[in-house]
């Protein structure tokens, strides 16, 4: 790690002030930040430790939303009775992620902002447009088995690695943020940026802006929801492909459906066309497979990751059929 200044403010107001310094960044659980600082991938001159700030560690229910404080630990949210009963996809996406120790440390705010696990991004001896804008991408002609097939660009094919954000993408989610310029609300779909020409820009937050809450609009889609994750080993691994599926059924017919895809895309991915194709249809393994094929119709594959298309399609089928058992 390079030397950095460290400050641990006592209130959110103080944190926002401390973050106004040039290059200052927040650290919450530190499980992404310290890892990448040790690798010299991130080199912030100043860390503002928000991990212990008061008032951001609760999950609350309002009339129309479930509101997550940005500092709720993954482990606590995963075990929350409301999520387990009414939004199982949001609980499963957390306990199927990382390890118990990491889930005890990591916060929900930090979780949605975790960085790609692309090995070329994580190793400063390779070229990476995300790490060093304009330097090139060694993943495109390299070992790209883990990389994205949806939402990539000529400059970057890294996949978004997180799980919870994929479940959030399947619901109507918003993020509350605060900076010296004041408070604002960002639609979750606008939080993560596709690489396009600027892969170094990974999220829409301004410098020094802090996420305070994640709000999921209450919905009957929650009950019959699931998060289905496929990985190289049975536990403690990132997704090769994952699907958050949520359903409202009318008998055998799909009344409403949501599909979030993970492990396969540059950002937490919502498969809207696939959803539209399913509405009003009977839900069978065949219609589910058609939805999966629609979801991956625009997939662009590289030397080693073409397997993610059939795997992703099957994962859509598994997730939908498993969500149906809860409807």
């Amino acid at each position: 790690m390079l030397p950095f200044a460290y400050e641990k403010p006592k209130s959110l107001d103080d944190a926002v002030k401390a973050l106004a310094d040039e290059g200052a960044v927040p650290i919450a659980g530190g499980t992404t930040m310290i890892d990448l600082m040790k690798l010299y991938v991130l080199q912030p001159p100043k860390l503002v430790d928000i991990g212990g700030l008061p008032g951001l560690g609760e999950i609350e229910e309002t009339d129309d939303a479930v509101v997550f404080g940005a500092l709720v630990r993954m482990a606590d949210a995963a075990e929350h009775p409301l999520l387990k009963s009414d939004y199982p996809a949001l609980s499963e996406a957390l306990w199927l992620a990382a390890s118990p120790q990491i889930r005890n440390m990591a916060t929900l705010g930090g979780n949605v902002l975790q960085r790609t696990r692309c090995p070329y991004f994580r190793d400063t001896s390779y070229r990476c447009n995300r790490r060093v804008p304009g330097s090139g991408c060694d993943a495109i002609g390299g070992i790209n088995r883990l990389h994205a097939v949806l939402g990539t660009s000529e400059t970057c094919i890294a996949s978004y690695p997180g799980d919870w954000a994929v479940a959030l993408a399947a619901f109507d989610t918003e993020v509350d943020a605060v900076s010296r310029a004041g408070k604002r609300t960002i639609a979750f779909a606008d939080l993560h940026l596709r690489p396009d020409d600027h892969p170094e820009r990974v999220h829409a937050l301004k410098e020094g802006e802090v996420i305070t809450h994640v709000r999921v609009k209450k919905t009957p889609l929650g009950k019959a929801s699931t998060y289905y994750k496929v990985r190289d080993r049975e536990s403690y691994a990132f997704a090769l492909a994952s699907v958050a599926a949520a359903l409202v059924m009318d008998g055998e017919t799909v009344k409403d459906v949501r599909l979030g895809l993970g492990g396969v895309a540059s950002v937490p991915w919502r498969a809207r066309e696939a959803e539209d194709g399913l509405k009003g249809q009977e839900l069978t393994p065949e219609t589910a497979r058609r939805a999966g094929e629609t979801a991956f119709r625009d997939a662009r594959t590289y030397d080693h990751n073409a397997f993610k298309v059939p795997l992703g399609v099957e994962t859509v089928v598994e997730a939908l059929m498993s969500a149906k058992t809860r409807a």
Binding site: Y6, K8, I27, G30, T31, I34, D35, D49, G51, P100, Q101, I102, N104, M105
Partner: peptide
């Protein structure tokens, strides 16, 4: 590197001592 922090298991390699 697992230790307990306030009774909860965490990774001490990703925890800053100052934190």
């Amino acid at each position: 590197c697992t230790v307990h922090k306030d009774g909860v298991r965490v990774l001490s390699c990703l925890t800053l001592a100052v934190a």
